[in-house]
Nucleic acid binder design. Structure first.
Length: 580
RNA sequence: GGGUUUGUAGCUCAGUUGGAUAGAGCAGUGCCCUUCUAAGGCAAAGGUCGGGGAUUCGAAUUCCUCCAAGCCCA
């Protein structure tokens, strides 16, 4: 199906050509001033210089050559050379119905397999506000890409190989020093069941981490355990497996609340099997050199203004680093999942690190095919002082603490509702409302910018928020529930055309969101559509409308809007409600 | 010190390849529930687009310079 703007672009391109301006890139856009038109063409302004003519004259030439058609109405020229026009109502009504049918159809597959690396939670550690962005943005990008026809898989990519693992092992040892895991001479099978519960695991890391900050000896001990684990000490590895297993369950609970559904639950340690091979490949093929005892790969390019620090393969102690693991992971993703593109949804602060990794991949030709490596960075969640957000006691705020805060606010609000809900309904509704507030607040700012963490903002249910969108859906739904199906043809009323025009802008929003990996475009669109609907809602009486033709048309629009809003929220991975 | 990002209303943010009167939300002001959920709608108010210079018919947007802040690497 040809989109309206494409149809218009074609007509205008022909008109320009007929008027003697042979240009291929004639474009039509939204009219900046509403009363002048639905759309406008600014091309005369751009062409003035080339043709040595005033834009106003060009615009009039074009207007005279505009062919007769059933779309464009009341085309006028405005100073200094805009061509403004309206779209015919009957045409718009027909187009809208076709358009909405088209949107429902599944897209043609793009044959592109994309792996999205988001999440990044650390095993044994609770999720904090910093994890919110990656989960929200990553999940939305995944859904948007899928909608556009890509074959997408999401990988949570857990941090399962760091110091925190040593801390938990230490905590277990402290509690049960006589478990077989700690007996170096033990050669038998280790128990299948973990020696701790989910609840116990939750408190292990925070308590040891706190103590290690003050206790130098304990800190050393933990480092040593971590080292021994990474060297493959049997008992520790067995215990480590238990920690991962229980930890995954805990982490999944949190991600489920945010609607972040990962296809893969891999972690840093899973690429370990490729690590030695990768190191050997880089060294053997002469891509690396030794500098101050460390093995590095120079990745600077001639066009760089300043030198980019080298990629570090092995440190001076001969140990693999975070960057090495990253390289091995990319190799793993090529071999095991055969991807065409990898998208990293991570904090902006990691940009240099990924630039180094990507360059190293390219320089060493370590991949068999050309995989597109994309860094999709997001801004840091900062506190009111502009620095990364910390609670009063100096820790990052826990995700669950934040959720509880928002939820209690939602509970308060829902309990006040005129509609008498049961306790169970109140519980469910406030849950959905709270999560929508949290996610929408996070998603609606352009991802690349740092943002100030503001509890009140996340708890806000008015204006440009998730609950506003949900509320709009429930209003629409309430009308639909109270009306019977009427069989009349859809005719668009003059007073409702703004809502219709808003509905057909969906394609632009998704396209932008997809191309720029920026879900905020969907938020903006959903908000403006909801806004338009609420204006429509306030102006019209729908279920009491006596003219059946009008009534039917308005009900149809209500239904279209509801579906569209739900579609947007689904792309953002935000659940909606029928009643609230 | 090098790199990088940012500076738009009191606060939090939008602002398409330069284009008409720089837009939203929150807070504050005034209206609107005897009709579909007021978590809403309508109206007004709020700005030297960090400062200065340059290019242009035309700059929040491009270039230069200065100021301030964040982050990364040292």
């Amino acid at each position: 199906m040809e989109l309206l703007v494409d149809k218009l672009n074609k007509i205008f391109t022909k008109a320009f050509c007929d008027a003697g301006y042979d240009e291929s890139e004639i474009k039509v856009g939204e009219c900046a001033i509403e009363k002048f038109g639905d759309f406008q063409c600014q091309s005369p302004l751009f062409l003035a210089k080339k043709y040595h003519k005033a834009p106003f004259i060009i615009a009039n030439d074009v207007l005279a050559h505009l062919p007769q058609n059933d779309m464009i109405q009341n085309a006028t020229v405005a100073n200094p050379g805009y061509i403004n026009f309206f779209v015919d109502n009957t045409f718009l009504a027909k187009y809208l119905e076709e358009y909405l049918q088209e949107v429902e159809k599944p897209r043609k597959p793009t044959d592109k397999k994309v792996l999205i690396d988001y999440g990044g939670a650390n095993c044994a550690k609770p999720l904090h506000v910093g994890h919110l962005r990656s989960a929200d943005i990553g999940e939305a990008i995944k859904r948007i890409s899928k909608f556009m026809g890509d074959d997408c898989i999401g990988d949570v990519h857990l941090g399962d190989w760091g110091l925190q693992m040593g801390m938990v092992i230490y905590a277990v040892w402290e509690k049960h020093p006589d478990l077989v895991y700690f007996d170096e001479n033990y050669t038998g099978e280790y128990p299948k069941e973990p020696p701790f519960s989910m609840e116990e695991l939750k408190v292990m890391y925070p308590s040891i981490s706190q103590r290690a900050k003050e206790d130098e000896i304990l800190h050393e001990k933990v480092k040593q355990i971590t080292y021994q684990l990474q060297q493959g000490r049997r008992g520790y590895v067995a215990l480590w497996r238990h920690i991962i297993e229980v930890s995954k369950k805990l982490i999944k609970q949190d991600y489920d609340k945010l609607n972040a559904n990962f296809d893969l639950w891999l972690g840093e340690s899973d690429s370990k099997k490729y690590q030695d091979e990768v190191i050997e490949y880089v060294i053997k093929n002469g891509y690396s050199r030794v500098s101050d005892g460390a093995t590095i790969v120079d990745i600077s390019l001639p066009e760089d203004k300043t030198e980019i620090p080298p990629f570090m393969l092995l440190n001076s102690a001969g140990a693999a680093l975070y960057s090495t693991t990253e390289l091995a992971t990319i190799v793993q993703r090529e071999r095991e999942f055969n991807v065409d593109e990898i998208i990293y949804v991570v904090d902006n602060r990691q940009e240099l690190h990924f630039t180094q990794v990507f360059r190293c991949v390219k320089k060493t030709n370590i991949l068999k095919k050309n995989i597109d490596l994309k860094f999709v960075g997001f801004g840091t969640m900062n506190g009111p002082d502009g620095k990364p957000y910390k609670t009063r006691d100096g820790r990052a705020m826990g995700l669950n603490d934040l959720m509880d805060m928002v939820k209690s606010k939602a509970l308060e609000k829902v309990s006040q509702s005129k509609i008498g809900y049961s306790q169970e309904e109140i519980e469910n509704i406030s849950n959905v409302v709270a999560i929508s507030a949290l996610k929408f607040a996070d998603l609606c700012v352009l991802r690349t910018k740092d943002l100030i963490f503001d509890v009140d903002k996340f708890c806000s249910f008015e204006g440009k928020t998730g609950p506003y969108i949900l509320y709009t859906i429930t209003r629409a739904n309430s009308i639909l529930a109270k009306t019977e199906k009427l069989s009349k043809d859809f005719c668009l009323l003059e007073e409702d055309r703004k809502l219709a025009l808003s509905l057909i802008k969906f394609t632009d929003a998704v396209k932008n969101a997809y191309e720029k990996s920026a879900p905020s475009y969907i938020c903006d669109y959903a908000y403006s559509l909801a806004n338009e609907f609420n204006t429509f809602y306030a102006k019209s009486s729908i279920i009491y409308e006596e003219n059946l033709e009008k009534k039917y048309s308005k009900i149809m629009l209500t239904n279209y809007t509801k579906n569209m809003l739900k579609k947007c929220m689904d792309l953002l991975a935000i659940n909606t409600l029928e009643k609230m």
